[in-house]
């Protein structure tokens, strides 16, 4: 059966990190998809790279706080740039996103290559593929580690960060679900009621950015998009109630995390490979497969049923 040492040291941290990233992103994704801002997250994710690099260059340290701050600032800047471009040139959001995304990411790549940043553990590869595989819980040889405060302190920082972010996301969404719903459904009416729509939009955006940054470190810029969009899109195929949709999306996110990990990390071992494949790609693929299944087979809105009804 499963060897507890292997599982706790290697499998569990990756599995948990991936699932938490999917969960935090997936929950926020519900509102993001409804706002038609799914692609904004794409830009935010790509902006993390220059943010981290500049954060490193400015502070000269690889301290996680500095990089996190840089990434966050770059994410917010990306959104501001998108909105500015849309207004200044009067173009569709997609075009503005495309321009900002590529420009910022290219800036990150070039600055990274030209500076000393790449000599440390920063590189473009992480931005493109994530670094889930580097998450290990050293010293967790047996199950008792779960209850051992000393060994719990040695939990990988990425996992802890994702855990904190997930708790924050769940808390804020729980407290402000009504407010966010009103802001997304009818912002003009919400403002006429005196709800601080701009503040709430900014708060939501910050929440997305923080989550995207944390998830970026785990699964990279592009797969973060899958984490944000797929669970909500899958849940959307089954229900017309926002609360049900949010609950379903959480389930789908966790399912994608678990099945994706099994697909990428364990299946190859069973097929005779010496090591598993990247879990991040596996999770995104699993999320996409779940979404496609939902699109085809969902009871009321799936295309199979739809076709029969017509």
């Amino acid at each position: 059966m499963i060897d507890p040492s292997d599982f706790l040291e290697v499998d569990a941290p990756v599995l948990l990190s991936g699932s938490l990233a999917a969960l935090a992103c997936g929950l926020l994704g519900n509102f993001l998809v409804l706002q038609r801002r799914a692609l904004v997250v794409d830009a935010v994710g790509h902006a993390v790279l220059p943010g981290i690099v500049v954060g490193f260059l400015v502070t000269g340290t690889t301290s996680e706080a500095a990089m996190f701050a840089g990434a966050l600032a770059a994410s917010v800047l990306a959104v501001a740039m998108i909105e500015f471009l849309q207004r200044a040139v009067r173009i569709e959001p997609g075009a503005a996103i495309a321009v900002v995304l590529t420009s910022l990411f290219a800036l990150g790549v070039v600055v990274l290559e030209r500076s000393d940043a790449r000599s440390i553990h920063l590189d473009v590869q992480h931005a493109l593929m994530g670094s889930l595989e580097t998450v290990v819980w050293l010293g967790a040889e047996d199950w008792s580690a779960i209850f051992d405060p000393e060994r719990l302190l040695r939990l990988p920082s990425m996992l802890v960060r994702l855990l904190v972010v997930t708790v924050v996301v769940v808390t804020v969404l729980f407290a402000l679900a009504k407010e966010f719903t009103m802001v997304v459904f009818d912002p003009a009416h919400a403002r006429s009621l005196g709800i601080p729509v701009r503040f709430l939009s900014l708060l939501f955006l910050l929440l997305c950015a923080v989550t995207a940054v944390a998830s970026f470190q785990a699964v990279g810029a592009i797969l973060t998009v899958a984490m944000f969009v797929c669970p909500a899109a899958t849940a959307r195929m089954f229900t017309d109630r926002l609360r049900v949709q949010i609950a379903l999306s959480a389930l789908v996110a966790l399912l994608a995390g678990a099945s994706g990990y099994a697909l990428a990390a364990w299946a190859p071992l069973l097929c005779g490979f010496e090591r598993g494949f990247g879990a991040a790609g596996g999770i995104a693929l699993a999320a996409g497969i779940l979404q496609t299944l939902a699109v085809v087979f969902a009871p009321r809105y799936g295309i199979l049923v739809r076709r029969e009804r017509v």
């Binding site: 592009i222 797969l223 998009v225 899958a226 990428a264 699109v295 295309i303």
Partner: peptide, 30 residues
């Protein structure tokens, strides 16, 4: 196909397909 359900806005459909294909690509690359 996603758009045919009329349940997903175009940007969400685009974003999810993009990321999923890329994820599949990464697994194949590995």
């Amino acid at each position: 196909t996603y758009l045919r359900t009329r349940r997903l806005p175009e940007d969400a459909a685009t974003a999810s397909v993009l990321a999923t294909f890329y994820g599949a690509g990464l697994v194949l690359l590995d």
